[in-house]
Design a protein around this nucleic acid. Sequence first.
DNA 1: GAGTTTGAAACT
DNA 2: CAGTTTCAAACTC
Length: 606
Amino acid sequence: MEQGEGGDFPPKKTQSDTTVATATLDFPAKKLARQLDFTGFGGPSATLVLPEHPQQAATHPLPPPPAQTITQMQPPPQPQQQLLMMPIQSQAPHPSVRPVKPESPRARPRQNAEVKDGTPKKQKQCNCKHSRCLKLYCECFASGIYCDGCNCANCHNNVENEAARREAVEATLERNPNAFRPKIASSPHGTRDNREEAGEALVSVKHNKGCHCKKSGCLKKYCECFQANILCSENCKCMDCKNFEGSEERQALFHGDHSSMAYIQQAANAAITGAIGSSGYGSPPISKKRKGQDLFFGPTSKDPSIHRLAQFQQANHIKASAPSSLSSIPVARAGNMAALGPSKFTYRSLLADIIQPQDLKELCSVLVVYSGEAAKTLADRRNATEKQAEDSMETSLASSTQDRLQSQKESDIEKASLDDYSSGNQAEKVGTDESSSDGADVSKGRPMSPGTLALMCDEQDTMLMAAASPKLMGHGCNTSSQLPCGQVMAEAYAEQERIVLTKFRDCLNKLITLGEIKETKCSSLARTESGGQKDPVSNGTADARTETTNQQEPLSNSIAKSAVLPTPRMSQMATTATAAFNNDPLPKIPSPAENGDIKPKTEREM
DNA sequence: GAGTTTGAAACT
DNA sequence: CAGTTTCAAACTC
Ligand SMILES: [Zn+2]
Ligand SMILES: [Zn+2]
Ligand SMILES: [Zn+2]
Ligand SMILES: [Zn+2]
Ligand SMILES: [Zn+2]
Ligand SMILES: [Zn+2]
């Protein structure tokens, strides 16, 4: 029945072929420059990853309350249940492990509230009134974190009520063992379903349980799929769904603001998050802060910048069989890694080992080179006068600077560099639509962090500028109000930026791909489901394709092996990355089996 | 900020 | 497992 309505999905246009065809490209299509800002876009939620700040990671070790990672150490084979959630509690089997204090979870709390200047990042706060924050209704609880700074009433989701909380956790798990696991799963070769584009690599992301929307068309945040920025899948039982590829309605949403890029990015993030690793996203939108709603183009909204990322919180993951080692750790949201540090076990992002500082450096160098060349080229060409540069510039990434993947410093660096490019020198977005004139406003130009400067900028900056134009250089020139010259410069910069960013993007795509690969290996468990999404395109009928994807197999031990331990495959990455920069586009997946540890698919057909 | 809408979570 | 109630967020005004 659900479908009674018409089949929901395939709304009318069965074939939007065009769209479909290019499917993946929906928005960005050619330009896609997926922006990388890992961070959250605006601020609200954005963060995809952890609720906390990476920066402080060190400090915060806090596993979420629930999670508590520590204790668990390794559950051997425990199938589902998790002991995980429980915080430590009483007797940890291995006291020796570290006394982490039971309260461990708490850590995160405080600091988030505004730490830094501009972007406060906070963890989201709930406003529960009748659940005591001990039910999944509470986002905090659902996310596995203690309430901190929330506006809840009679809150028991805190250290003081740990016992109650624990009990609630147990009850919740009883109802749904996957209640605290990330909910969006992604699988590498998408079967064509939701591959939110991750660049070349296709990533299929979908909500494990699917939504059951009836009136929102799945285009409002009421819909979990939409909120997570993923398309509805066959797991969904929604009515009149418009959240599918090719949906005009959906497209309209993006279209409005340039958020498209962001959107993409987000998708990428989501993919990364889900797929690769980090557990989920972290924080939901903050809320109250900005008034408009987050919808992309909301009615009054003014702040377009939003976008949230996938923020889902809890949820399930692989259900069934898969005890997976990976999953076990999960709860702790990524952010904590640092905390865990000591124990070997911490959950690390799959990407963690992929990138190393030196790689970053190399990357920066490469980019610098490109930049220089670009500048040169432009100069020559400048006569031609093509202004199209602005075409969109995908570079608006200046957007934020805050969080990002928790990953490691690498990320910081990367990000930093991006920021520099964008915000530091040229006034951030060069020509974005509306903003084109805003040069003046640059107010936003945030000063970059010192670290950032130190890291790259000096050289790069200089180079960049020098090559491009002697003029702006000085660093403070942002005021730029597009003067005549400025304009020229702007173009040049734009182009330059475009080039650099493109390269960087490629690199990141590769990284994503690697991560996926890794992930795939790790969990060949494959997700189960069938994989497809509802797909509008074909419409209901269809389906035809059975997706043969890999389906699942229980993850075997192999996973355990590899997953748990960090795998150093970095060098490869470096290589790959480098290559990428060089322009060799590697197609997608580099090499499948490099190590050969695991075999990818075990597929079984139905 | 108050009031409405919405769909997940909880409950029966 | 379906139907209903509860709940807090998303959204509207
Ligand atoms: Zn709450
Ligand atoms: Zn709370
Ligand atoms: Zn609370
Ligand atoms: Zn929906
Ligand atoms: Zn859905
Ligand atoms: Zn839907």
